[in-house]
Design a protein around this nucleic acid. Structure first.
Lengths: 211, 211
DNA sequence: AGCTAATACAACTTCTTGTTGCGTTAGATA
DNA sequence: TATCTAACGCAACAAGAAGTTGTATTAGCT
């Protein structure tokens, strides 16, 4: 029952990279519905049996390809004023959503299309945004410690005000996503702060709820 | 070259309704990728040749089914205070996004998945949101005329602040969408107004932009 | 009651999907 | 350099879905 000797270097690795690349590229160009194992194989210059034997199903390939790219984390700069940090954060998101890299666009497609219903993709998506959220929360709490803002500010609510309008353009209105959009989102979020919004001591707002 | 006499009443109509219903239902349960003409036919208790002859392609059926439901407009109540109108508006959106009706969920799936890349669906989506936007803008401009708020308020920006967090939960974070979320979104949007946000005379915000 | 548009049914072709056996290539080890 | 064998390429195939066509049947209309 000895384990067969694996060969991680060389061809296997090249095939893996080529397949992941072809998968994300295809996800971007043809969408999840139009993506097939044979199209991936053709684009990766690899035979379809190779994919069938190594990954079994289309969903498994997609999940693996997305996981591979997402594992490369994006660092967040957190030093200086709250405005600058938030602005940098928002602009980083804008740059990401505007990326012309087929691999990044493939992941975005996976996250914001039908593929997001796959359990593996859903988990990756949740983990990715949880990570981003934690980084953003650090920005806000740091500002709280510097006494730039009140301590009872709901960090999640504030970050939501910053990023929600950006995602809104990507997913709903389809309007272009410029740096000006990012800056305006930050300005409005901070304006809400000044106007008394994002208080964490009013968890359910003042209104009664029916649902 | 006489036009053949059509028969809009009776069976044709029943088939049409059954097919649209089955399409939206299938879109909800199986997704766009999993949807096939044969599955629609089976669910509608109709033979597949009927669908092939009347609608030609899967995309055409989906577009027609979505268009049929979307054509039923949702009225917006606009009387009273800005807070109440916005809250009603936001809560209506929440109720829509939480709808358990398979037909509504099917349309939502069409709008926020791969099907939204189809030209017909994209047009329907754009028109639908343009209509909603116009209604919302009326709320804000009415408040401006009542002098509840300043005249130089960017209505679109304000509405964006209200609805963006709601869509953000649906499409990005996946958190539950309650009435409390709607109310909080309105509160924060109005707080932003008080804090000096949503001014229409600062179209590109103060910051320089690189993109 | 008769006409015929619209649908159902069956049989068929074509294309896609996924599998299997076997020969070939190229890392790894000595 | 020679050898071993994991990983891949290739061809052939089976299974099934997608889409088409001819004909019979149903049911709306006059």
């Amino acid at each position: 029952m000895a384990e067969p000797k694996r060969r991680p270097g060389g061809r296997s690795e090249r095939v893996r990279v080529a397949v992941y690349d072809a998968t994300l590229h295809g996800l971007h160009e043809d969408g999840y519905a139009g993506l097939t194992i044979e199209s991936i194989a053709a684009r990766a210059s690899v035979h379809k049996t190779t994919i069938y034997r190594r990954w079994q199903s289309k969903d498994a390939v997609v999940a693996a390809a997305v996981a591979d790219l997402v594992s490369q984390q994006f660092p967040v700069q957190a030093s200086g004023s709250l405005v600058n940090d938030l602005r940098y954060f928002a602009r980083t998101l804008v740059r990401l959503l505007n990326s012309r890299s087929p691999r990044v666009r493939g992941v975005l497609h996976a996250f914001f299309s039908e593929a997001s219903t796959l359990p593996e993709i859903a988990t990756l998506k949740r983990d990715f945004f949880a990570g981003r959220y934690a980084q953003a929360e650090a920005i806000v709490s740091a500002a709280g410690e510097r006494h730039d803002i009140a301590i009872d500010i709901d960090a999640g609510e504030l970050i939501g005000l910053v990023v929600a309008p950006i995602y809104y353009r990507l997913l709903v209105s389809g309007e272009p996503i410029t740096n000006a959009v990012a800056d305006r989102a930050v300005d409005n979020a901070l304006a809400a702060l000044r106007g008394g919004g994002c208080q964490s001591n009013t968890p359910n707002s003042g209104a009664a709820q029916r649902n």
